Amino acid sequence: MSLPKPVMRGLLARRLKLHLPIAFVLAIGSAIAFKYTVTEPRKQAYADFYKNYDSDKEFNAMKEAGIFESVQPSGE
């Protein structure tokens, strides 16, 4: 008694019928998960930060700290 030969003809097509839809579903699921777990909270954090951000106040604080070489603090 011998083992039957494996069927090789059409093997790739049969496997792709199963694996291709699974790959698409996993890719779309990963993209959706990334969008709602990473990008949306990041966009909200930026929106919250810039809601009350005063660039002139920040500039004056950095100027007083002496960060800029070309701008003299107002105290001098």
Rank of each mutant, 00 (worst) to 15 (best):
R15K: 03
L26N: 13
R15Q: 06
L18A: 07
R42S: 09
E58L: 11
A45M: 05
E58I: 13
I28Q: 02
M8F: 06
I22Y: 12
P41N: 09
F24L: 04
P41S: 10
A45S: 05
R9Y: 10
V7Q: 15
K43T: 07
V25A: 14
I32E: 08
H19S: 08
A13W: 01
P6R: 15
P21W: 03
P21E: 03
K51S: 07
T39R: 10
A33P: 06
H19N: 06
I22M: 13
L12R: 01
I32M: 02
V25T: 08
P21D: 01
V38R: 13
D56C: 12
S30M: 13
Y36T: 09
L16W: 00
D56K: 15
D54R: 13
K57S: 09
K43Y: 10
L20V: 02
L18H: 03
A31M: 05
E40M: 09
L18I: 14
L16H: 00
L12E: 01
S2G: 05
A45Y: 03
F24A: 02
A33K: 05
F34T: 15
L3G: 03
T39E: 14
K17N: 01
L26E: 13
K43G: 11
A31V: 01
P4S: 15
S55W: 13
P4A: 11
L26D: 07
I22K: 13
G29M: 07
T39G: 04
K5V: 11
I32F: 04
D54K: 12
Q44L: 06
Y46L: 09
N52I: 05
D56F: 14
P41R: 07
L16T: 00
H19P: 01
A45K: 09
G10S: 06
A31E: 04
L18R: 05
A45T: 05
T37P: 04
L18F: 07
E58A: 14
Y46P: 01
P21I: 02
R9M: 12
K5E: 12
K43I: 08
S30D: 08
A47H: 02
M8P: 06
R14V: 02
P6K: 13
V38D: 15
A31R: 04
D56W: 14
V38A: 13
A13N: 00
K51V: 03
Y36M: 06
R15V: 04
L11K: 11
A47Y: 02
A13I: 00
K17T: 01
A23R: 07
D56G: 12
I28Y: 02
D56N: 15
K35C: 12
Y36R: 07
V25H: 07
R9N: 07
V7P: 14
L26A: 15
Y46M: 08
P41Q: 09
P6E: 10
I28M: 04
I32R: 09
Y50L: 03
L3V: 08
F34Y: 11
R15W: 00
K17D: 00
N52M: 04
D48A: 10
R42T: 12
S55F: 12
A13L: 00
D48F: 03
Y36C: 06
L20E: 00
A47L: 08
T37W: 12
I22V: 15
N52A: 06
T37Y: 08
A33F: 09
Y46N: 04
A47P: 02
L11M: 10
I22N: 11
A45N: 05
P6W: 09
A47Q: 03
D48G: 04
I28L: 05
L26M: 14
A47N: 04
L26P: 07
